[in-house]
């Protein structure tokens, strides 16, 4: 299963159709423990034929730009609107991924989105899980879409 391709396609589709921002997918990061310098993240669990966690991680200005475009309003700080918008994006991304992998006979259910924000945090996954991180660029900078998963 090529999660980098699935993430790139799903993210581009959602940003084109729902948020109306042009984004460019870059090569997936080499696996490892890069610390993504981010200030707001939304994550959602997926489970079924694999257990996974999907996340979108943004520096503050990128998170504000994406949420602002989605909500059609100017946003100046990481507030409840920004967290809600990113949570909804993570939900749509997870839904898109669920749909794409179902064609390979992998069935998944979604949990509910959670937002993490702050000036200093790191998110880690259990030992032994696989991780794919795809960076995307928009005018304001870079954001990351990540999936961590384990086959059941």
């Amino acid at each position: 299963m090529d999660f980098a391709k699935i993430i790139s396609e799903t993210t581009e589709e959602i940003f084109n159709c729902m948020i109306f921002i042009d984004i460019a997918a870059q090569s997936p990061l080499e696996s490892g423990k890069q610390v993504l310098a981010c200030h707001v993240s939304a994550m959602i669990g997926l489970t079924g034929d694999l257990t996974a966690m999907l996340g979108i991680h943004c520096p503050e200005n990128v998170g504000l730009a994406i949420s602002g475009a989605m909500l059609g309003m100017e946003l100046e700080e990481v507030d409840a609107d920004v967290k809600d918008a990113l949570g909804e994006i993570s939900n749509m991304l997870a839904g898109g991924i669920k749909e794409r992998v179902s064609s390979e006979n992998i069935n998944l259910d979604l949990a509910i989105p959670t937002a993490v924000a702050g000036t200093s945090y790191t998110i880690s996954a259990p030992k032994g899980s696989q991780r794919v991180v795809v960076p995307f660029t928009i005018e304001q900078g870079q954001f990351f879409v990540e999936i961590k998963y384990q086959l059941n």
């Binding site: 509910i112 959670t114 945090y121 998110i123 880690s124």
Partner: peptide
């Protein structure tokens, strides 16, 4: 109910909030 994958979040300063109407 099915469980997904656990994550750990850690740091000097962060907030976690649930977004759904739960």
């Amino acid at each position: 109910i099915k469980l997904s994958m656990p994550s750990a979040i850690y740091g000097e300063d962060y907030t976690i909030d649930c977004l759904a109407d739960a």
